[in-house]
Amino acid sequence: MSATLEGTAGLTGGDPGRPSGRGDSHAEGDSRKRRRRLLGAQPLGILFSAPYIVFIGVVFAYPIVFAIWMSFQDYFFAAPGASVDRPFVGFDNYVAVLTDPAVLRSFLNVGIFLIINVPLTVGLSIVLATALDRVVHARTFFRVSYYVPYVTASVAVVAVWLFLFSSQGLVNNILGPLAPNPSWLVNSFLAMPTIALFVTWKGLGFYILLYLAALQNVPRELYESVSMDGGGRVRQFFSVTVPGVRPATVLVVLLATITGANLFTEPYLLTGGGGPDGASASPVLLIYQKGIQQQNPDQAAAIGVILMVVVLFIAWLQRRFVGGEER
């Protein structure tokens, strides 16, 4: 019997007095799976992405956490190294900004801006990208022409826009008696729509490039199939192009929304800081005015946190209803 056990142990390479190693192998396999789930299939990738992770943490994560903390304090600027008391005030800053008519007006203004800017950006970008994709001659010239306003400094482009839409500008001279009175940028009803048109025009080149890249992934056979069924260019556009670039549309909608929510330069330069009477003020512009000019950084931080929550909610709605996920 003893010889038999020893022979068996010799064949299996184990000790007859010890339990089988299956439990150890299972534990090792589970540990490997957990490590892979935590670090990924290629743990070395974490090392290469570490500088960007640090950049995100320093430039984005820390300021967000600090702004949230600041919004619950009676915070004010002090000299470097000075020890001052900044007591916890709870939701007082949020109550102050949410009962401020100027803040509520700024959120309404940016809502009007998004209602005009986002549909125009999506519609014009996809139509122009489709047209540029079919251009044979001077394709590079047309693509660069649309992209130039996007890469041009805002201050320079704003000067051109002021020349066009000022009270004595070119547009009013062309319209003559049909020109609005007060003029575009000093009219409380037209100031924000005019800014929305400006931002749409300036950023159009970037979104056209996104759609041009997406169009390269749409199979040409689908256009030929629709054409053989008697479908013209319009039917091809709605039956093939629009569904084919759906992921790009979701991205464009999201980027246009985030850009619009962070509106600052255009109302600051075009209307002299949100005029007339706050009709073109944006939440980010009020953050600057309250935090820097009026020395109320705690209320400015509260506006920023509210704006962040609103943008995240809008982004979730867009992902849910515009179609960011396949169902």
Rank of each mutant, 00 (worst) to 15 (best):
P16L: 02
A301V: 03
S83Y: 08
V54E: 07
V127K: 02
Q236H: 00
P182K: 06
A138E: 13
T249M: 13
V118L: 13
T200W: 14
I292K: 06
S2K: 14
W69F: 04
V95R: 13
S188M: 09
P297G: 04
N172I: 07
A156G: 02
S280G: 13
L210G: 07
G7P: 00
K33D: 08
S25M: 12
L11A: 14
F321K: 07
V54G: 05
V309M: 10
N109K: 02
K202L: 00
T4P: 00
P180A: 01
E28A: 15
P193Y: 08
L210H: 09
D92F: 02
D92T: 15
Y207L: 06
V234E: 08
Q168E: 15
P276T: 01
Y52R: 09
G324Y: 12
P51R: 00
F313R: 10
L286V: 11
P19N: 09
F60T: 11
Y75S: 01
V311W: 11
N187T: 00
E224Y: 03
L209G: 00
L108P: 00
F113T: 14
L44R: 15
L251M: 15
T12L: 14
Q293D: 03
D30E: 11
V252K: 04
V311L: 07
G278I: 05
L307F: 06
P182Q: 08
M228P: 01
L204S: 09
V171C: 03
R220P: 01
W184A: 10
V155G: 03
L104D: 09
F206G: 10
A213G: 15
G278C: 04
F91K: 02
G275Y: 10
N181S: 14
V250L: 15
D277M: 12
V95T: 12
F264D: 12
D30C: 05
L124C: 13
P267V: 11
A50C: 15
F165A: 04
F60L: 13
P101V: 01
L98I: 12
T265G: 05
E221H: 12
G323I: 07
S71F: 05
A96E: 12
V158L: 03
P19T: 08
G45D: 14
F107V: 06
A27I: 11
Q42G: 12
E266G: 05
V234S: 12
T194Q: 12
Q216H: 04
F55C: 14
T99K: 06
I306V: 15
V284T: 13
V144F: 01
D74Q: 15
T99V: 01
L39A: 11
N117D: 09
G230T: 10
F60D: 07
T257M: 10
S2N: 14
G13V: 02
A256W: 07
F163A: 09
S188E: 15
A301L: 02
A261N: 06
R246V: 03
T257V: 13
P149N: 09
I314H: 04
S71P: 01
T8M: 09
T194K: 08
F113Q: 13
Y52E: 05
I53K: 05
L222A: 07
F72E: 00
G260E: 03
G203A: 05
G278R: 04
P267I: 13
V97K: 06
Q73M: 00
S280W: 06
A248R: 06
M70S: 13
V97C: 06
P283I: 13
G232P: 07
T194L: 05
D100F: 11
R327I: 11
T140D: 06
A213F: 01
